[in-house]
Nucleic acid binder design. Sequence first.
RNA 1: GAGGGAGUAGUUCAGUGGUAGAGCGCCAGAUUGUGGCUCUGGAUGUCGUGGGUUCGAACCCCAUCUCUCUCCCCA
Length: 424
Amino acid sequence: MLTQAPRGTKDVLPQESYRWQAVEAICRRVAALAGYREVRTPVFEHTELFLRGVGDTTDIVQKEMYTFEDKGGRSITLKPEGTAGAVRALVEHSLYAGPLPVKMYYLSAPIFRYEAPQSGRYREHHQFGVEIFGAAEPTSDAEVIALAMRMLTETGLDGLSVSVNSIGCPACRKVYNDALRAFLAERIDTLCDTCKDRYQRNPLRILDCKNEKCQAQLTEAPSMLEYLCEDCQAHFEGVKAALTALDIPYQIDPRIVRGLDYYTRTVFEIIMRADGGASLAVCAGGRYDGLVEMLGGPSMPGMGFGMGIERVLMLLDQKGVAVPEPRLFDVYVAAIGAEARIPALALTEGLRATGVKVEMDHQGRSLKAQFKSADKCGAPKVVIVGGDELARGAVKLRDMETKEELEIPLDKAVEIIKGGIAHA
RNA sequence: GAGGGAGUAGUUCAGUGGUAGAGCGCCAGAUUGUGGCUCUGGAUGUCGUGGGUUCGAACCCCAUCUCUCUCCCCA
């Protein structure tokens, strides 16, 4: 237990963190291209924020939150999703009063959900997410979706397609919920227990049920799309037209309803197929025009998505997309004998000061062993400090590939070696 | 919350009642200051944890923890 990470968590080790950094760098760059700047909000918030924001009938709130009381008696929750905190910050700092739209992204943001860990699912995972406030036009929906697609494409993934749907506004959704209840009324006995409950509280959610029996009942069910009001209909048409214009492959999936209560109109998912055959969303999001107001701000439209970094990495693995690994060292400084160690260290630090990546031995190992480790760490050059050369103020520089060695004066070593590396 | 599979060296695993093993990795050596290949040698295990059965348990039984996968739900 002592030396075991808690269930559902994972260490990112030094030898693999470059993969994360590569994906993160792409996220930042792509977000910046569209004017999104980073927001960093706390890892925990008042529990109430999520009760109101995410919705107290959702699974996330009902059974997956890490909630505890702090020493001041406040109910605190580790964030189970990224949007609520961003909206809270928007409202708290009155960002809505500045130039619109407000665009922000978050990254390296741990998200916590208490659920059974399995492939691509953790109790702590990390999301890159984007939020845009104050933009209601369908082009903003498309911009956000395009950003997600570009981000994924730039990591080297391809063949991804977007599933979109519109779940309307509160007004037309109410009409639809009534229609759906009417449709399901005579079939309610064949639904699973969860869906019986959903029937009362939120029949829309039944569409999302993975139970085959429930799905079988739904083939003839009315579609939300048929019940969209005029405005919502026009908005959805606008989103589709924009996606088409951008050559973003998409399909309409009336089954997408999302597990968070705050969504309105556009909802979308970018799906990956896991090895086992199950499909997981790498990225999901949508429009939430009522959320800002619900959390105490002005009435203001919003749109965003969350993307699971672990799942992006998993997808890269599955597709065999290699993430280029940066070279760890340019130079290895080897020392012969005890008297050479200090000069070796001085040379090492001198090189590092000019931006060269250098390793040296700190275990007092034999020259042979130092060469082995130079080889292992991939350093293309080795500098040998010691012996006769050191006595006359020189060192040897060996090219590990060509095996060429030349003697260079110690006081010019930094300059010469750095020059050699720069051109390599 | 429900159900499968699995926990033995750093790692991948073999070992099914009688003194803990292999490959890879790691460390060292193969004469005197030089890597990748080869050869030789070496170190490392509370056999997940706790209890039980037995003369004797890595092995059988019970419990527990963890990993992994599926359902549910989600990024």
